[in-house]
Amino acid sequence: MPVTVPLSSRRPGTSRRRRVASRAATVTAVVTASLGVLTGAELHGSSDSRETRLEAAPDLLAAAPNTDQFAATEPDRFTAFTPPEAQRPQAVPEPVLWEQHRIATEAARPRTVRPVGGVLTSHFGQRWGAMHAGLDFGDPIGAPIAAVTDGVVVEAGPASGFGLWIRVRQDDGTIGVYGHVDDILAEVGQQVRAGDRIATVGNRGYSTGPHLHYEVHHPAAGPIDPLPWLAARGIDVLRSPA
């Protein structure tokens, strides 16, 4: 009975051809990736010439990994390209600088100030048999009067007993009254900020000498003592002004 011997399914040289094909595919992938990086550099303003990149191509081919070891090696890593303009110091636009300055100045400014530089001469309460509903500050005629808080002028002009006055709706909803003023420097509806000059000290109305009479009126309680109200906002009017 004849014996059948199975022939090998592989032809001579098949394994070698596969290794060569695998290596060729790997080289193609590396070259393609490298050319992609070079193309990206050209698009982003790289100073390398085209001739220099072409001369570097044989080196890239020589650096291709061996096919038999490719699976065991770490994949190539490419350095990200940074365009030259991104490496230059970036100047801040002038409008942005001005806005930053404005914000810093606004955050640093006081929200409550002393109304005048003169000393406290009379307190809130009963005086000469009548209610004295504010604080008196002695100061020369013409001395500046400042808005105590941010607010809106709601009245400015003649007033019984005060000669002339200014009334300001303050930032907390109270009304600040400035009486016996000599000159009015603000008008009704004007927005004022703490420290803005709104009038000058006078001696008008029922007054025994030049001074500012300052009151604080609460919407629900009426006139309240300005001394603790100012103290709660960081202003100690009992201390002599600097």
Rank of each mutant, 00 (worst) to 15 (best):
M1Y: 08
T4F: 15
V5W: 10
L7A: 15
R11H: 02
G13T: 00
G13R: 00
R16P: 03
R17T: 03
R17G: 06
R18N: 09
R19K: 02
V20Y: 11
R23T: 15
T26R: 12
A29C: 08
A29L: 11
V30G: 08
A33G: 02
S34V: 12
A41R: 12
E42M: 14
E42F: 15
H44W: 10
S47L: 10
S47I: 07
D48S: 15
D48M: 14
S49F: 00
S49C: 01
R50I: 09
R53D: 03
L54Y: 12
L54G: 12
A57P: 10
A63C: 03
A64V: 05
P65N: 03
D68F: 14
Q69M: 14
A71S: 09
T73C: 13
F78P: 02
F78A: 08
T79M: 14
A80W: 03
T82K: 10
T82E: 09
E85L: 13
A86R: 08
A86F: 08
V96Q: 08
L97V: 01
E99C: 09
E99D: 07
E99P: 05
Q100Y: 09
Q100N: 11
I103T: 09
A104I: 01
A104G: 06
A107H: 14
A108S: 10
R111I: 14
V113E: 04
V116Y: 05
V116D: 00
V116C: 08
L120H: 03
T121E: 02
S122M: 04
H123F: 07
R127N: 01
G129I: 03
G129M: 06
A130H: 08
D136Y: 08
I141L: 12
A143D: 02
A146K: 04
G151F: 01
V152K: 14
A156H: 04
P158H: 06
L164M: 13
R167H: 07
R169Y: 01
Q170E: 07
G173F: 08
G176W: 06
D183E: 13
L185D: 03
L185G: 07
E187P: 04
R197W: 07
R197A: 10
I198C: 14
T200D: 05
Y206M: 13
L212T: 00
H213L: 07
V216I: 12
V216W: 10
A221Y: 01
D225K: 05
A232V: 04
D236N: 06
V237Y: 07
L238T: 07
S240A: 15
P241E: 04
P241W: 12
A242S: 15
